[in-house]
Write a protein that binds this DNA or RNA. Structure first.
Lengths: 221, 221, 221, 221
DNA sequence: AATGAATGAGTATTCATTCAT
DNA sequence: CATGAATGAATACTCATTCAT
């Protein structure tokens, strides 16, 4: 049960001053390192503080509670996930659908390969943080963006319920890539997974399958 | 003292006697109820025992540790998930691919609608249990079964790397349905999600899209 | 603190019947085996019963509590220690002091080499059992016997306070041999320790040292 | 998570600060009081903390586990036992053997009369602590020191195997005095036990008995 | 007599959080 | 602002003992 004592999961203050910013970063780095190395079980506030080289007191100066530390870590990760997506969806109207979709998938793969271990722990071991949880926030924001992008090329779509289709598609991409980080790292890095995902998604959305063979080229043309 | 590495996540003894069986069930019921109601945080051995109306001692008579309680709960859930799959994949050779796939998806949806709240908590909040974790065991077993089923209809397939395709497809189905339990219960119950998923998967695997409109009928013919 | 709930540390009944006797023995054997193998930490009533192949209930039929199990084990050990001593002290009047003393020491060594591991655990790990503890009972009984034996040869003694001397001597012998079981097993088996102890004790009691070299022979003549 | 095998039986940190030192002392005092009053059975970490007037948390701040509490208590006791012995053995070469031996025994008696109840509990009831146990460490260190002392006066010795003799002698002295704390406190305080022990040991080691009557004087001359 | 399921008080230990310095 | 000593509620698990069958 998510027991939020404080408004929680948000940094206590905007890190305006330099020293503050530095301290916050040092703490978050330590937190990430600990999570990656020892999993959520090793993630204790005292240890984070010690590893960061600050006192627990200082940690609590910047983060009202343990949860907020995780929250910030997640926020940063989502930022990374969203950075590219914003740019790509912005250009959706100018490009064929297939191209946009492939770009989105490629970018998601790229983002998942940044500190994959941390990403892993964050989504697998860390208990849910209530409505502030990144998975929820990110999921729906991503869906909105993708929906908007798809709507700019409505004519190419062959789906009935666009909402449902977007939900399906974003979920499938995110989860496939996420799981592949652990299960199929080679296919992820080689582009094989991107290729297959793209074929699956584009085929589904447009009703016109990219031929397995020509898809890469086709999308580029 | 011989410190037996507790082969955790397995019930301590086969519940042979009637009283024993009853106790085991009463405990598992209580465990499930607590998980659903209060999440993993509320899941303490003492509370489970109390809720079950037995002593902690009794709980530990049947489950060597907390983990094993979760393990058994998971085992039962997986059993539910697998029951139908085995039957369906067994008949794969006799039916068109689309039909088998739709059946698998429908069955998975059905299984997810049995005690969905418990299913949810089990996969989202409960920390990973090592190699005994059902997610790992189940995932790969399911993939194997599906692969075998698809191979009986190789000629209908239009994918290069079958392994990768199976990985993608089973993961996408499982995660889409799983997420929809929480996010889109109506689409799940109405069959809309099943429909879309089937179209996506069949289209991807065969290279020949089911038309959105005629898909249901088509699959049946 | 020794918390005796029952009159404790005595077997509940004289094992008269054959089946009873057999059960008692089977339980004590199991208890001894467990103590030797796993130390006092492994010594739980349930495990003893299981190892013995009887139910806990049966164990409690014959032993009112855990303590009494240990008590009986100790009683048997003391019996072993005392068996020889009685015979030897009985003949004390007929023999030179040195001979009696050597005989007592030799017999004590012999007794300590019977199941030394059990002996060890019993005296080192097992918590004190109150006034019923064998160490106390045995210690004073042994002292009494030795005192009586020495008094039959008073003329050979060169000590002032005989009581104190006996206390010193019995304690020294017992503890030296006991420790040597663990620390100097070779000297114990070779007879070297017996030799030295005899020299020390005889010298102390008679005021006339046995020469190191001739002591063995001298005692025998 | 990195599970550091706690190098138990050592204080967690050097008690540098004043407040820390005070807390440590207050905890150890409480621990000693509880052991003396209620024996090892009453010795629970929670009770120690409560008696000390600190929280369990604080206890664990300074002692990584229960064992380490006992370890420190033992360490301090051994310190007491060794303090005098070092000084006495250092001067062994300058003095007749008898004098050194008597001094060692007297000092051991003195040390055993400091908080004898605690000493008692520590050696009788407290379970062995592995290689960190003071009994082992102290025993062999003491033997080494005594051996060195005796070797400075080799010419006065009439023993064959010095190692064995030292083992015998240190064990006998330690155990006799130790037992006498409980069994013969009057003889211990009056010096009678010291006297007899000295006669026994000196006689054994030198082969020339101190006459019972003149021994005190003789040793002094 | 024998069984073994059930009991539940008791224990060591952790860790998020506070607050006096 | 920073420190880190102190807090104490909470938790998993054990085991001697009982008693209904």
């Amino acid at each position: 049960m998510a027991k939020l004592k404080k408004t929680s999961a948000n940094p206590r203050k905007a890190p305006a001053q330099d020293r503050s910013r530095a301290t916050v970063d040092v703490i978050l780095d330590a937190a990430a390192r600990i999570l990656v190395k020892g999993g959520y079980a090793a993630f204790t506030t005292n240890r984070v503080a010690e590893t960061a080289g600050v006192s627990v007191g200082s940690l609590y100066q910047y983060f009202p509670n343990k949860e907020s530390l995780l929250g910030e870590l997640m926020r940063r990760h989502v930022e990374e996930l969203e950075r590219g997506m914003v740019a790509i969806t912005a250009d959706a109207a100018k490009r064929p659908l297939a191209e946009t979709i492939r770009a989105l998938i490629e970018d998601n793969v790229r983002a998942h390969l940044v500190d994959p271990a941390l990403h892993q722990v964050l989504s697998e071991e860390v208990p849910r943080l209530g409505p502030l949880d990144w998975r929820i926030a990110y999921g729906s924001r991503a869906a909105m963006r993708v929906r908007a992008a798809l709507e700019t090329r409505r004519s190419e779509l062959a789906v009935g319920d666009l909402d449902l289709a977007v939900y399906l598609v974003t979920g499938a991409v995110e989860s496939a890539i996420h799981d592949a980080v652990a299960d199929r790292p080679d296919d992820l890095r080689s582009g094989a997974l991107t290729e297959e995902l793209t074929r699956m998604i584009v085929g589904y959305l447009t009703g016109k399958p990219l031929s397995a063979r020509r898809s890469l080229r086709a999308a580029a043309e």
